[in-house]
Simulated scan of single mutants.
Amino acid sequence: MRNLMIKIQYNGANYCGWQKQPDSLGIQGTIEKAIFDITKEEVKITGSGRTDAGVHALGQVANFKLNSDIPYSKLPNALNSKLPKDISIIDCKEVDDQFHARYNAKGKRYRYLIYNSPYRSPIYKDTSYHVKYELDFNKMCKEAKSLIGTHDFKGFMSSGSSVIDTVRTIYDIEITKDEDLITIEVEGSGFLYNMVRIIVGTLVDIGRGRIKDNLSEIIDSKSRSKTGHTAPAHGLFLKKVDY
Rank of each mutant, 00 (worst) to 15 (best):
I6N: 09
A13P: 08
G17A: 04
W18R: 02
W18S: 01
K20A: 15
K20F: 15
P22G: 05
S24F: 15
S24D: 15
S24G: 12
I27W: 08
E32W: 05
E41G: 08
E42T: 14
I45L: 15
G47F: 04
S48W: 02
R50T: 10
T51P: 04
T51R: 01
T51I: 06
D52L: 02
A53R: 13
V55N: 00
G59F: 06
F64H: 05
F64Q: 05
N67H: 14
D69T: 15
D69G: 05
I70K: 15
Y72C: 11
Y72V: 13
N77P: 11
A78T: 11
P84Q: 10
K85N: 12
D86I: 02
D86H: 04
I87A: 02
D91H: 12
K93D: 12
E94C: 02
D96F: 03
Q98K: 15
F99P: 04
Y103V: 09
N104M: 12
N104D: 14
N104L: 05
G107R: 09
K108D: 10
R109C: 15
Y110Q: 05
Y112Q: 03
P118G: 06
P118H: 05
Y119G: 09
R120G: 09
R120C: 07
Y124P: 00
Y124E: 03
K125S: 07
K125F: 13
K125Y: 14
S128M: 00
Y129A: 08
H130Q: 08
V131W: 04
E134S: 12
L135P: 05
L135F: 08
F137G: 10
M140Q: 10
M140D: 08
K142S: 05
E143M: 01
S146K: 05
S146I: 05
L147W: 01
L147Q: 03
G149R: 00
D152I: 01
F153T: 02
K154H: 14
S158I: 11
S159K: 13
D165V: 13
V167I: 11
V167W: 08
V167E: 02
E174P: 07
T176S: 14
K177Q: 14
D178V: 07
E179P: 01
L181W: 03
I182D: 00
I182R: 04
E185M: 11
E185Y: 09
V186G: 00
E187G: 14
E187W: 06
S189K: 07
S189L: 08
G190S: 10
N194P: 13
I198T: 07
I199W: 03
V200G: 00
V204W: 03
D205W: 08
G207F: 00
G209H: 10
R210W: 10
I211E: 03
D213Y: 03
N214R: 10
N214L: 10
L215R: 01
S216V: 06
E217I: 01
E217C: 04
I219N: 05
R224S: 07
S225R: 13
S225H: 12
T227H: 00
H229G: 09
H229Y: 06
A233E: 07
G235D: 08
G235R: 01
F237Y: 12
